[in-house]
Structure formats: structure tokens, C-alpha cells
Design a protein around this nucleic acid. Structure first.
Lengths: 342, 342
DNA sequence: CCTGGCACTCTCGGCGTGAGAGTGCCAGGC
DNA sequence: GCCTGGCACTCTCACGCCGAGAGTGCCAGG
């Protein structure tokens, strides 16, 4: 479909446009990208590329700009895959050290990603619901309020306060906690909850008052968490990108960020699939976000996918470097989480 | 200093400018604000106000714009104090219901403030360090990692994971937790920590191994939290304000928001003082934030100030309404926290 | 098949202009 | 003595014009 010359010119257009954010002319390509062809020849090639939909002109007789399709071809077939520098890799390694708490670590990773790139970092935290369960603890705060502490694998901790209808003693809570912990060791919270509900449906007789109470209470404590947690860092970066010099665009963007559910939707698509995922402009599964690309990669513990991290930038983004950054971070984070004691 | 006419004209200028964001001319004032004076007369008054520094002209022979000093006088002496509608008060009451966890509630309050005003909401969470202490719990995660759960008054909960040098059993942890809880009931974490360090310094003999260990471990568990927690909501609102139609200003603003420490510094100033605090433009204790005003009020539990909430907007802000909003929210939040069981 | 030449198109910045808003000042009136 | 209408003046802003510059498409010749 695209011969070598077409591909070379497309590559040059993408590279130059990523660098300068200005439409690229035939002369620039001929001079700066080592083609031994005159601008006139380049022009016919560019006309071909335009007809095939890989590049576009902002207006008649301006230079060419890559289309989403052009970026896609570039990413799939032309892009080099640069390595991060050793210093950068070391820096990432420091941030994902094995100590501390997972949420804290993810927040730091977000800051790191946004510091190492001019884009917005997004990190989706593991869904507690889906994580293998290790333990639950209850702490009586008041006769009618109980603090629930949920511990999942890999240092994932979550606490919440729930109201209870009937007064309980700390002793009773401890017994219930022990019972739940035994019952559920290693299953996900979702499984646990379903199990509890199933048991509750069965045990109509309520011959064991304590057990009935434990079931009822446990089901309440494990009730579904609201939204997947999302950390966004470096949103101010976008204001630096020339494509968002327009106030109206900026507004839409920042509004989109406050509605994190949109971002979650995009990142969710990355939970399946392989090593990484790139959405370019119109490929984005959410309509509200325009003119942006996302590069995201899942991170794991052993073989289980925990969450997704990535960067969000203008379609005119340095895909090679951003991908290296995202992949490396995901890889190192996966390693750190896998090496974690429990 | 300012006679009645001066004040009336200043008030009209501020009101009109808040509404329209356009410099206010003598004619507008004469027509729209019920002065039975001709524009020419208004003009001489305006010239006086300008000389005294209450208003300024963006350029020769444009209308007048209030200066920071003008806003200050308006806020101190001229401003009406509108009431929130019943519906709004009810809405706030719903958000600050007595159940659930404090942090969660504060986050919601932030969203609420930004929904009820076109400004940015900021809510500073109680500093755990300063809160009266109720209880500590330890959970052994791995031989060398312990989950610390700190419970302060009013349902303030915090957890963190710490690394320990020497292996401990859960039994031992429970004993230490009990010891610490007994020792410290009702004091703030800061006091507790200082106490521990003092005791450690004294007990050089280490005659009681268990006690020494408890002290050492306790001190570590209570180590200072990083930053005061801050919730920011509705930052995208600022993009709607005409004064930030300039990209450069927006950039600076959003960058300032990511550096939350600046905001914390401002809000900290409000922790002392009485019912509320208003910083107008150049009065702001942090130089990085320009052209903005802050209205903030502390919220309490009983008589103890826990934190601060407020809104951040352009100096051209509807001070009356914003103040009503902030004060009411702080008042209702205080009531809810005070009524809380423990 | 490539290339230099050429006419053409479109953007962009600078410039001038005129309308409009608002001012300060002054002389005259209540 | 204070207020007011009138007037000349100033400054911004939107508009349109123009020329420079960048880039194109096409064509004819090597």
C-alpha cells in the first residue's frame, strides 16, 4: 500500500510535526530528513499521502499535518522504540521501592510519570473488589459505628466506617472478623460477598444466631466500593501544549478531568489486552475527550492485572518516548509488587 | 474619610464590576444605581475615589475598576450579607450528615462548595497530628511490615504501613497498642510522640525490654505526617472567569494548584482568627497566586478548630454570596462534627 | 521518473481608520 | 456653592487592507 518513499515521508512529517507543532512543508522534509529528492518530488508523495488519508492540510497550500490514521501507521510500523536512559530507569526504580503502601506508591508513580513527560499522568488503583482477600479487622468506634479495615494482597489496605443497627461488642466483632477471615482467605472481596449473600439466603432457619449476625454484618461491611480510584497528576502540563492555547479547549479538558469516570472508562479498556494500548484521537472510546491520545499499560502482581497506568497528551505526542516511559514504569511496578512479601 | 456619596458610588462600581467584569462608567452608575445625580457629578466623585486609591482606570478615560483596597472597603463596610436559600441550606445539611468518615465527608463538602459557586473549593482536612487521640491498632502484615491504624476524635481515621527492623508477633503488637492507647488517651498525636521521645531519652537503663521496645516502636508509628491534606474541587471553574481568558494566567494558576503547599499556607493563616477570613488580591500571603481572593472559615468540633474550608476566586468575586456559602457550610459542618458520637 | 520554474492560494502580522465609550474641564443655572 | 449639560479629548477595539512569506499544484524539459 505505502511504498518505502511514502513511509519515509510520512515518518518525516510525523517526526517534524511532533517536534514543532507546525504544518510540515515539502522543503523542510527534503532538506532536513536526508532525502535526495527535490521538494517537488516530495510534494507528489505528500499529495498521495493526503489522498490516502494519512496527512491533511489545515488550509489550502499550507504544509501537511498527520491525521489520526497517519499517527496510527507511524506507531504501528514506523516508530523507533527508544530506551530510557539509565538515570531515568534508576529514578523510576527508586519510586517503586518495595516498602510502604500501595496507594501511596501509586500516587508517587503518577507524579513521577508527569515529571518525566510533558503529559498528564493517570494511574488507576487496584480495585479492592477484585483483589484476593487476606484479612478483615473491625474496630468499635461507638455503639453504632464500626471501622472496617480490609486487607488485600500486596499491601492493599482500605478502611471505611459503617453504621450498624444493633449494638455490638468488640469481642463479638473480633469473632466475626475471625470467622470472615477464615472463611474467605484468598478469595476476592466480590467472591466473598457473593458467598455471604448466598449463605444468608440458605440459612433461613437462623439456628445459629451468631453466625446469622456475622453473615449479615459481613455482607454490609463488604458492600461495593463506589468508583475505581484514579490518580491524575500534571494536568497543568496540558496548558503548555500549543494545541490547547485555545481557552475553550482547555476548559473542556479540565472539566473532563474532574469527571474522572470518563478516564476510568478509557483505562478500563486497557485492563484486558496485552502489554500496552495506544488510543489515538478519534480512536478514544469516550467522545468527550478530543484531540488527545492515551498510552496505557497494565501493571500486575504475579500474573494478576491489578490496575493501569498511562499518560494522556495531545495526539501530537512523542509516542516513542511516552511508550518507553509507560512500559518501563509498568514493568518496574509489576516487579516491585510481585516481589512484595504478601 | 469617604462620605455617603463616595461610598454609594464605590458600592455601585464594585457591584457592577462583579456582575459584568467590565470597567464601569459614570453614565452606567447614574442610570442603573438610582443616583439622582448626573454622570458629570458622578465623575468628580469617581475622580476622588481614584485619588484615594479605591478604584483605578485600566487606561486613560476608560471606566473605573475597583482596586484591592476598594474591594476591601466594600467587604468591610458596604457589603450586604445575603442569606442562602432554604433549599441551599438543606442541600448543605444533607452533605454534612453525621454518618460516615470525616475525610470522605470533607471531600464531598468540597464538591458541594464548588457546585454551589462558580469558584474553586478548598477544604483542609484536620491535621491528625493535632487531633485528640483515641486509639491505635497494629496489624501484622508480614514479619517486617506492620499496618498502623490511628483513630482520633470525631471519626478521623488514618492508616499507614511501616517497616520494622525486628520481627514482632501480633501478640506483642497488641500489647504495645494497648499500652500506647492507655498512655495517650485524649492527647494529640504530637503530644504523644513528644512524650514517647522524652521517655525514651530517660529510660536509658532499658530495664524493661518490652517497654523499651514499645516506646521505640510507638515513636516510629507516630512519625510526622507529611503535609496537611487538602481537597480541591472545581478548578475548571476558573477557566470560565473572563479574567483568566489569558492562557498564561491559567497556566500559572493550575501549576499553583498542583503545588498544594501554597494553598495550605494561605489556609493555615485562617486557623487562628475568628469566624472567617477574607484575603483580597495582594493581601494574599503567598505571592505566586495573583489576582485571586480567598474566603475561608474554620470548622470545629466543640471548641477545637479542626480545619479550614473556603473558596478561591478572582478578586472580582461575589463576596457576599461566597461568604454566606462558606460561613454556612462551616457552621453546619461544625454542628455535624460536634454532634458526632466520638 | 525527477526537477526547476511558475503561477496561485492562503495565512499572518502590521497599519490605518473610524466608531464608541468614557473622561476632565468649564461655564452657566438652580 | 453645588450640580449639570456641553464639549473637546483620549484611548481601545474591531475592521479591513495590504504585502510578505510559506507552501502548493502543475507543467515542461532533462
Amino acid at each position: 500500500m505505502l511504498n518505502a518513499r511514502h513511509q519515509g515521508v510520512l515518518r518525516a512529517i510525523v517526526l517534524d510535526y511532533i517536534r514543532t507543532a507546525e504544518p510540515v512543508g515539502s522543503r523542510t522534509i527534503s532538506r532536513r530528513y536526508g532525502f535526495s529528492l527535490s521538494p517537488a518530488t516530495i510534494r507528489t508523495t505528500m499529495a498521495d499521502l493526503e489522498e490516502l488519508g494519512y496527512v491533511a492540510q489545515p488550509y489550502t497550500s499550507a504544509g501537511r499535518v498527520p491525521t489520526d490514521r497517519g499517527y496510527r501507521f507511524y506507531v504501528d510500523a514506523l516508530m523507533e522504540r527508544p530506551q530510557l536512559s539509565d538515570a531515568e530507569v534508576r529514578r523510576i526504580e527508586q519510586y517503586v521501592g518495595p516498602a510502604g503502601e500501595v496507594e501511596e506508591m501509586l500516587r508517587e508513580v503518577g507524579k513521577l510519570l508527569s515529571a518525566l513527560s510533558p503529559y498528564v499522568a493517570v494511574v488507576m488503583a487496584p480495585r479492592l473488589q477484585e483483589s484476593p482477600f487476606r484479612r478483615v479487622e473491625f474496630v468499635l468506634l461507638a455503639p453504632d459505628r464500626v471501622l472496617v479495615i480490609l486487607l488485600a494482597e500486596a499491601g492493599l489496605v482500605h478502611h471505611k466506617v459503617i453504621a450498624v443497627d444493633e449494638a455490638m461488642s468488640q469481642d463479638e466483632l473480633d469473632r466475626i472478623a475471625g470467622y470472615l477471615t477464615d472463611l474467605l482467605h484468598g478469595r476476592s472481596l466480590r467472591e466473598v460477598r457473593d458467598l455471604l449473600l448466598a449463605q444468608m439466603a440458605e440459612e433461613k432457619a437462623q439456628y445459629d444466631r451468631m453466625l446469622a449476625r456475622a453473615l449479615r454484618f459481613g455482607a454490609k461491611a463488604l458492600e461495593a466500593e463506589a468508583e475505581a480510584d484514579l490518580f491524575v497528576a500534571g494536568a497543568a502540563h496540558l496548558a503548555d501544549q500549543p494545541e490547547f492555547a485555545d481557552i475553550a479547549k482547555m476548559r473542556a479538558l479540565f472539566a473532563a478531568f474532574e469527571e474522572k469516570s470518563k478516564l476510568v472508562k478509557i483505562l478500563n479498556e486497557c485492563l484486558t489486552g496485552g502489554d500496552f494500548r495506544i488510543f489515538i484521537g478519534s480512536e478514544m472510546p469516550v467522545r468527550e475527550i478530543q484531540g488527545l491520545s492515551v498510552i496505557a499499560a497494565p501493571y500486575r502482581r504475579r500474573d494478576r492485572v491489578l490496575g493501569v497506568l498511562g499518560v494522556l497528551g495531545p495526539t501530537r505526542m512523542d509516542y516513542g518516548r511516552a511508550l518507553a516511559l509507560v512500559e518501563t514504569t509498568a514493568r518496574l511496578l509489576t516487579r516491585a509488587l510481585t516481589e512484595r512479601a504478601a
